[in-house]
Structure formats: structure tokens, C-alpha cells
Computed example of a mutant assay.
Amino acid sequence: MARSLINAAKQIAPESISLNLLAQSIQDSLAQVATNKTNIEDIIASKGAASGIATLDAGGKLNTNQLPALAIGDTVTVTTEAAMLALTTAEVKNGDVVVLNTGDIATQKTYCVVDSTKLDSLDGYRQLLFPEQGVAAIMRGGVAQTGQVSLAEVAFTGAAADLAFSNAGFIATNVSAALVELKAANDGLVEDIADVTDAVALKVSLADLKFNVALTGDIDGTNKVFALPEAAANDTLCVFWNGQMLKPTDDYSVSGTSVTMIGSPDAGDKVWANYVKAAA
């Protein structure tokens, strides 16, 4: 207002402007400047303060200490449902996750707190649903392992009848009886578990697997005949000369425990074999 009056004063004759009006306009403008200054100071002072203005960090995001509790959320673990229903608002709040870890995968559950005024009732929680889980852990070398486990890492010990289980699809309560039941379901015939036992007897035991077994015989650039410490099962022998696997018939022949090579290893060469021990 003062500026418009002053500009107007340049265009009209002297003594034609009211000095009182000009002074009042200047005072009003100064008062407005003071008010604006106070408002700006109030805005600056309210940054990050209660009922004030949220501030951004160096990355242009809200500071985490200015976010509501529901946006952060904590995780609390209990072992029984009774312990969960005994939680207080000092321990959990809306948005927190409560893990009911009973130690049994069949009863283990996870909840989200939806109403902290009803913590003593399931109405205060909402169960989080996940896909049905399979085996929680499997033992490997006496240590529980989680995640994917290959079939080669799974081993059962004891008699088949000792491997107990419970499954609604079977009357049987152990592996031995379940195999009989499964066979009957497939072709209507009930097979004795002895058939399975006989098949298992044909398996190769770990003790029969032989690796990096040195062949005995002179390594002098002349000798071609070497000996295995025991007979190898048919089609299981692999002979190596300085790390190179030799080809049967083309590079060597076998008779019992005797290995005859086409070439003669020189002094310092290494000759060894991998094989499965022949059945007694």
C-alpha cells in the first residue's frame, strides 16, 4: 500500500498527498513485515516438534523417530497362547507382530496386534496366514538343518518297523507296514516286507566305496602290471595316471586284482583307482 502511494506521489503535484495517510500506510507495511517475520520464526521453531512440521533427513526421507509406532512395529515372541493374551500395552502396540512359538510346527502361529485395548482376547489380534510348511528341520551329522536338503543327505537308521509315523491316509503306523499297504493299493496284492528287505540288501554300503586307492607295483618306466588291494565289482573300476582317467581296454585290462596298463608309468608318476569293492 505504501509503495502504491509513493509511486502515485511521483505523478501528482506536491502538497496533494496526505502525510498522515502516507505515514499510516508505512506503519501498516512495517507491521505486516513484523508479523511475517514472526510467522516464519514460528514455522522454523515447529520443525520436528510436537504438533509441528515433520522434517526430512539427508536422503530426503522422513526421520524414523518422527514416524508413528504403527509404521515401525516390533516383534515379540511367546511360547504359549496364555502368555500372548497376558501381554500389556507396555510390551506391544498396534502393528506389532507376535510370534507364538510353541516348539511344534503344527501349533506355531504368527499374529499382528490390531487392537491394543483387547490384548487379553484373540479379538485384539489377527493371525497372519502362511503356506503350509513341510519339514521344519532335518538332522545332518547330529545337527538340525533347515532349508532344502538333498536326498543323499537323508539317512535312516534302525529297523523299518522302528521308523514310526502317523498319516491319515494310512492305517499303518510305521514304514514297514506302510510299504505293504502302499503296494496293496497299487495292484491289490499284499507283499511281505521281506521283499523290500531283500532289495535293500543289494545296496552299496559306504564302506564298499573306494577312492584314491594307490595301485601297488614298480613305477620305473618299465613295469606295466599293478595290483589292487581287493577285487572291484564289475564295471566300477576307474584307473587314473597322474590325474588322467584311463579308458578300459584301450589303456588297461583287468584280471581279478591285477591291472595291466598299455604304458609304463615313469618314476615319480602317480597311479591310483576308484572302485566299488566286489561282494564277498
Rank of each mutant, 00 (worst) to 15 (best):
L21S: 15
Q32G: 14
G124D: 02
A199I: 08
K247I: 13
K277T: 03
N174S: 05
G169N: 08
C112D: 00
K203E: 10
D251F: 01
D235Q: 07
G60R: 05
T110W: 00
S25N: 15
F130I: 06
P265D: 04
K210M: 14
T260K: 14
K10I: 04
N223H: 04
T38C: 06
I193M: 04
N212R: 10
V99T: 03
N101G: 08
L67A: 03
L56D: 06
L129N: 14
G158F: 10
A214W: 04
F211T: 10
N274P: 05
G134I: 02
L22R: 02
D235L: 07
T117W: 07
V196F: 13
V213S: 01
T236Y: 01
V213C: 00
F165A: 09
A23E: 13
F226T: 03
I105A: 10
N212Y: 05
L215S: 02
L128D: 05
T77W: 00
V259K: 01
I219V: 15
D74P: 00
D120Y: 05
T117V: 11
G142Q: 06
G134S: 09
S18Y: 04
T260R: 01
S29E: 12
K10R: 06
V180G: 12
D57N: 15
P248Y: 07
T80S: 14
A9S: 15
L30N: 11
I43W: 08
Q108E: 15
Q66S: 05
K270G: 04
T216S: 10
T173M: 02
K270D: 07
I193Y: 02
A23I: 13
A86F: 02
G221D: 12
L163E: 09
T157Q: 13
E91P: 05
V78P: 13
K224M: 01
A184L: 11
T55C: 13
L182P: 00
F130H: 11
K37W: 09
K247L: 08
A8F: 11
P265F: 13
L119T: 02
D115R: 00
N167S: 12
M84A: 07
V225Y: 00
E181V: 07
S176Y: 11
A69D: 01
L151S: 14
M245N: 05
T216D: 08
D250Q: 11
S116Y: 00
N65A: 09
K61S: 14
N7W: 11
K247V: 07
E41A: 14
L228T: 00
V135P: 12
N101E: 15
G268I: 03
A161G: 06
K270M: 06
V99G: 02
K61V: 12
T216H: 00
Y125L: 01
A106Q: 11
S46K: 06
A9W: 14
V196M: 08
A233Q: 13
